[in-house]
Design a protein around this nucleic acid. Sequence first.
DNA 1: CATCTTGATACTTTTTTAGTATCAAGGAAT
DNA 2: ATTCCTTGATACTAAAAAAGTATCAAGATG
Lengths: 302, 302
Amino acid sequence: MELRHLRYFIAVAEEGHIGRAATRLHISQPPLTRQIQQLEEELDVQLFIRTPRGMDLTPAGELLLEEARNIRSVVEQAAERTQRAGQGKLGRLDIGIFGSAILDTIPAILLKFRNDFPEVKVVLHNMGKDAQIAALRQRRIDLGFNRFLDPLEDIVNEIVLTEKLLIALNEQHPLAGQPAVPFSVLQENPLIVFPVGPRPSFIDKVMHMCHQKGFAPHVAQEVGNTLTGVALVASNFGVCVVPESATKLALPGVVYRPIIDPPADSGADLNCIYRSDDPSPLLESFLTTVRTFGEQWVTSYP
Amino acid sequence: MELRHLRYFIAVAEEGHIGRAATRLHISQPPLTRQIQQLEEELDVQLFIRTPRGMDLTPAGELLLEEARNIRSVVEQAAERTQRAGQGKLGRLDIGIFGSAILDTIPAILLKFRNDFPEVKVVLHNMGKDAQIAALRQRRIDLGFNRFLDPLEDIVNEIVLTEKLLIALNEQHPLAGQPAVPFSVLQENPLIVFPVGPRPSFIDKVMHMCHQKGFAPHVAQEVGNTLTGVALVASNFGVCVVPESATKLALPGVVYRPIIDPPADSGADLNCIYRSDDPSPLLESFLTTVRTFGEQWVTSYP
DNA sequence: CATCTTGATACTTTTTTAGTATCAAGGAAT
DNA sequence: ATTCCTTGATACTAAAAAAGTATCAAGATG
């Protein structure tokens, strides 16, 4: 039995007439007669009672009509869903997230993506960068967000956007009243750095910038994450370099100030990583969203 | 798209290998390659990633695999259900019932039928014989049970079984102690007859027998149904002729006795009626049950 | 009774599907 | 590096299936 048999059967059942059904199907009457006979023969069931006025369904035929209509719609839906999946509009995307990017950027990207592709289920996994790479290779996630990643052969590393760096100061600090501060505040104040964890990380970025400017900073404290660093600034423990998205952490007693004289290459990249051989159109859809987001974001911040 | 495409697709997806799938499908490899290409082309979706080791499903392919398996089972079930319906094992049968046959015979037949064809839904409609004929013609019922029906052109009238006639006597009656009674008790006692309603009926049967025996009975009372007639016997109102299934009505004070000298053609037929042009295999199944029941029943009663 | 309509059938043509032989490309083993 | 083996893809041929044409027999209809 093929779907053709069911298509033909539905037409004959609905028209109650082989000739009219043939017209509707754009074929001639004899082949339609034969296909119906074939269907009856294969099922070994009489589906129609032939009368001089047309074709009447038997009870078995009535039942098959219902079933055939159901099959038709199931097949149609299957085709549509497959097509949408092929266009990256339907399916599931597992994403690894990590670090300070969770504060601002990633929620905004996800919001936009869910809006554009409402039928894609996005599952977030909180995991460090090494865990992300392992999960990518094991296909447990399709994409990861992180920073400061060494290049890898089998994994593409794409910059989503580059955040400017700000200095977090306690409001009691002498320069807190200024609209911007010189880089040298990092030399003259105890420095809080983060995150503790796998290298390279944001710590190395900050240290490298200081060496570029010709000094070694006084590291007062290493902390696990952005929030802890900013919290220490709030208690006047020292100063701290943060990406601009950290301004979302509006802790009382902390002000964020741009750097008057930033060193070259001063900026914190947010990267996304994915398998270089991943053909998923769903991933492609997501990357499109990410890229347009990156462009808009860069221009939107002064 | 045809079911063939889905069958082939499932095989390739499950084997992950065109060659092995072709072996499993008992075809050669090239046509299978082309059918898969055709499916991808028609859906405009890449379903497999070709590797030097075989065929890997894309996410869209994974989805279609689920859908295709579902379609396969839906189609299989549709075919099976249609076949069972064609064999009269699945469906709905509307039956009109009426009169004293409800007491014993019909429940027994239904019990047997439900046992043999558990997937057939039987709907009973209580209606008189004229209503049954009308309902048959309007296709509201498929079969009716009744007695004493005039022959009709478009409706088959089949005898289910012939019940012997008994005489119901009050236990105070002089002949109540005898194992059997002569027909003449109907002449010598007030007679209760039933049912009141459309003619011909059981009343005419009884009157005809009396005339055969050369007397006109003294009709003490006409009543609506068997139960009322027997109830009058219980209060010693008179005697009553009943079909043997009425013995199920074990009213206190009433005894049932066979007739020593029954007139020729003494017996109450239970008939079933159905459209002569009804091709329903379901009806055929039911009639088979009815016929075997009739044979067994006749031999089972002394 | 002639006529019209119905689905069925015999036969032919076209389309589709399957089969055969062969190929190019990517791993694996030497 | 090179040979060999495996993979799916392709060109061409053969077979099968579906569709088309012409015609028929059987009921309904006037």
